[in-house]
Computed example of a mutant assay.
Amino acid sequence: MSPAAGKPSGRIVAELGRPETPEETATREAERSRTYRAAKTFPNLVWALIFSLIAMLAIVLVVPRSNQPIERNVNVAELAQQSQVITDVPLIAPSVPAEWKANAAEARQGTDGVLEWSAGYIVPGPNGEAAEFVGFSEGIQANPTWTLERTGQRQPTGEIDHAGLHWQEYDYTDLPEKEAGNSRYALSTERDGTTFVVYGSHSPERVKELASAVADALKAPAE
């Protein structure tokens, strides 16, 4: 008989007083592996978070930044000419002061079926900072609901004659700026089935200045 003859095989389990079965060995090894992986998961998550923060900090330090808001200056007249193919109604391009920057201009058709051409301008303050926003919307065959939406869901507060046109006036300058939004003061008029709304975030003077430019564009002969 060899020296190993008669000796039990497998690991002796003290609690059982006998060698563990193959199934018990497999269960023990699986549990040890699970415990090891669980112990490694949390440190790995911590290190991943640290590396992510380091990478984010590096991007913040490397990428140049400016305290000034990003400003675009789109060519309203050019975009109006390009969009003219969708309608026979002239799309206006008001002549505004050179320092005004047009940050948006587009033609779109809403769910109500109204074809709209609009543009918005950033008006600089004394130090060149963005101080006010003014804009206009031209609604072809517009309905009262369209006009209501463009004037901030507000009712007219009066009527005025300005730049040779008669306008509905929406004077909500008594509201706080955040509440009033971009239609703190607005004017609307209608001509040949097309409604024009001019609006602004701050002063009536700037809105009336744009309204004068809109009126001039309407009086100009079609090219």
Rank of each mutant, 00 (worst) to 15 (best):
S52Q: 00
P22V: 09
N73A: 13
Q68M: 15
L45M: 03
G110Q: 13
P64F: 11
Q82K: 08
V85M: 02
Y36K: 13
L49V: 12
T25A: 05
S52I: 13
A48H: 08
R72T: 13
V114K: 00
N75H: 06
Q82N: 06
V85C: 09
K7L: 14
E31V: 03
S52E: 02
A105T: 12
V76M: 04
S9K: 14
V85R: 09
I70K: 12
V74A: 01
W100A: 04
I54T: 15
N73K: 11
F51K: 14
N44A: 15
K7D: 05
N75A: 09
P90K: 01
I59A: 03
E31L: 14
S52P: 00
R18Y: 07
E78P: 03
F42K: 10
A107Q: 07
P69L: 05
A102D: 04
E23F: 06
G17R: 12
T27H: 02
E106H: 09
T21E: 13
E15V: 07
T87E: 06
S83W: 06
K101E: 07
G110I: 09
A55G: 15
F42M: 08
A48M: 05
S66R: 11
W47F: 13
T27W: 01
Q109P: 01
I70A: 11
S83Q: 06
R108D: 00
T21D: 05
R37Q: 10
Q68T: 13
P22M: 07
L16G: 01
T87H: 10
P64G: 06
I86Q: 14
V60G: 04
A105M: 02
T35C: 01
F42D: 06
S95F: 08
V13S: 15
T27D: 08
V89N: 00
E15F: 09
L61S: 10
N73D: 15
A58Y: 00
P22G: 08
F51D: 04
A104D: 05
A93V: 03
A98R: 01
V96N: 08
S66H: 10
L57N: 02
A77W: 00
L115T: 12
R72A: 11
G17T: 11
T21M: 02
N75P: 04
N44F: 07
I70F: 01
F51I: 15
T35I: 09
K101P: 02
E15M: 03
W47Q: 05
W100T: 05
N103K: 09
A107W: 11
I92G: 05
S33M: 14
Q109S: 04
R18T: 08
Q109Y: 00
E99G: 11
V13H: 06
P22R: 07
E31I: 11
P8A: 14
P8T: 12
A105D: 04
A30F: 02
E106V: 13
P94Q: 10
R65V: 01
S52W: 02
L57V: 01
S95C: 06
G113I: 05
R32Q: 03
L115Q: 09
L91T: 05
A26G: 08
S95E: 15
I50W: 04
E78W: 04
P8K: 12
L115Y: 01
R72F: 03
V76S: 05
G113A: 10
D112C: 11
T35F: 00
I50G: 04
N75K: 10
L45W: 04
V46S: 02
L57F: 10
L57R: 07
V62Y: 08
V46R: 04
G17K: 06
F51R: 14
